[in-house]
Design a protein around this nucleic acid. Structure first.
Lengths: 232, 232
DNA sequence: GCTTTTCATTGACCTGGGTTAAGAAATCAA
DNA sequence: TTGATTTCTTAACCCAGGTCAATGAAAAGC
């Protein structure tokens, strides 16, 4: 029940119906115009509708309510959204940019996930209220919709129909998590790299290779060798 | 929503209020008395109450309804509950015994999970209605409570209060799955073995070592060497 | 009981990834 | 543009785990 609400938080602030609204926001909050360009390039519009339409159809009224709930933040590349030991007070939905989650074990980084546009991030620490064991860090300048327990409760009060969504989304996340684990078990690092090339080639271009290596469970040098091997 | 119901299926048939009931059942369905002994040894009683009490308190009336819904099956060691390519029509709750889930990749087994007493099994294929990619197999003689979509729907009709449970359980499962993945990423095979010794020493005694090895992501020979290394 | 099959261990050798260190290439800042 | 920093590649060497094969030990079948 709690998580049902919590995952919904991720949806709270997301409704941006026109790209103009985004542009307006950016011009007042962001110095760099890089991000603006990217937004235009990616032809980003109505991210919430895209996301929610996977699960449910929204009435215009509901869309309005959602869009009025927006709390959007922008972060510079390198910003740490959540640190080890800290208790997460927010959850996120990425409108633009890329965020990584990683453990710091014996001084080096172990990437467990990359999150990009239209992905919700619900830190374990957010639901458990215990200190986080991992970090969340912006790998690019980001525009992110923020959710809190209060805001999600309020949203649920206004749109009780969304309650059913929570478990749908949870279901998807569980399936994803299972797939990730199973794939990791089944494949060699080399196969995992090839898999990544197929499933998310974009990541390989926007994320530094040494982070990709970490994500694949190997060292950057090994990834170099694998790439060399594959190109022959 | 669907999974909320589906996970509940796992709870459907579980209510066995007295060990006598189990014994009665066993004596009519199982030839070997091994299992009976084990039940007595493990002091097994009210498994459903144990399990559900983690999430909710049940009234006597509810307990009665649950116990009337029981559909319990026994399986011989080696029985395959679900095969690759098959669409799962049931989900399970283990009353007694041990079940493994594994992929068959290039002819050899990759264990992803062991399930034992009081654990629910909801195959991915059961929720997605697509052919399963992995197997479920009894590693011991098992007594298992079976759930189906129909039975879960019926149960939910009678005990709508249980609906809230679904997402709780899902939440737990998601957290577990995440932990498993993260641990796999962070630890070496040797560390994973030591971890297993700590967290579930029982498994090491009841499951053959070559399956443990597979679960740890290594070959039996390597596990032998690791054990040798650790004992010096 | 005996036989057969399954499981665990050991040894010799191979291989892919880790480690270290150096240099090249790309990115960033001024 | 230039210099500094970050990221990527290469090479040499090491080591844990994989592979193959042989041997025991333990279970399972009959």
């Amino acid at each position: 029940m709690t998580t049902m609400i919590y995952t919904l938080v991720a949806l709270k602030g997301i409704l941006i119906r026109k790209i103009f609204a985004i542009k307006r926001y950016i011009s007042t909050h962001i110095t760099s115009y890089h991000t603006l360009d990217k937004l235009a390039r990616h032809n980003m519009k109505d991210p919430i509708v895209n996301f929610l339409s996977k699960y449910i159809e929204l009435t215009n009224e509901e869309i309005d309510i959602l869009s009025n709930q927006n709390f959007i933040q922008s972060y510079k590349k390198g910003t740490i959204l959540l640190s080890e030991g800290q208790i997460a007070k927010e959850c996120y939905f990425i409108l633009q940019g890329c965020v990584s989650s990683y453990y710091l074990v014996n001084g080096d980084i172990k990437i467990t996930d990359f999150f990009t546009e239209q992905q919700p991030i619900t830190p374990v620490s957010y639901t458990t209220k215990k200190p986080s064991e991992y970090f969340l860090e912006c790998l690019e300048d980001c525009i992110i919709s923020i959710g809190t327990p209060e805001s999600s409760a309020e949203l649920l009060r206004k749109l009780p129909r969304l309650a059913a969504l929570g478990s749908h989304i949870m279901e998807d996340q569980l399936a994803n998590q299972r797939m990730k684990y199973d794939e990791f078990i089944k494949l060699t690092p080399e196969e995992r790299y090839q898999n990544l090339q197929k499933t998310s080639p974009d990541l390989l271009n926007r994320v530094p290779q040494y982070l990709i290596a970490s994500y694949l469970g190997i060292k950057p040098e090994s990834l170099s060798r694998i790439r060399k091997r594959l190109y022959n």
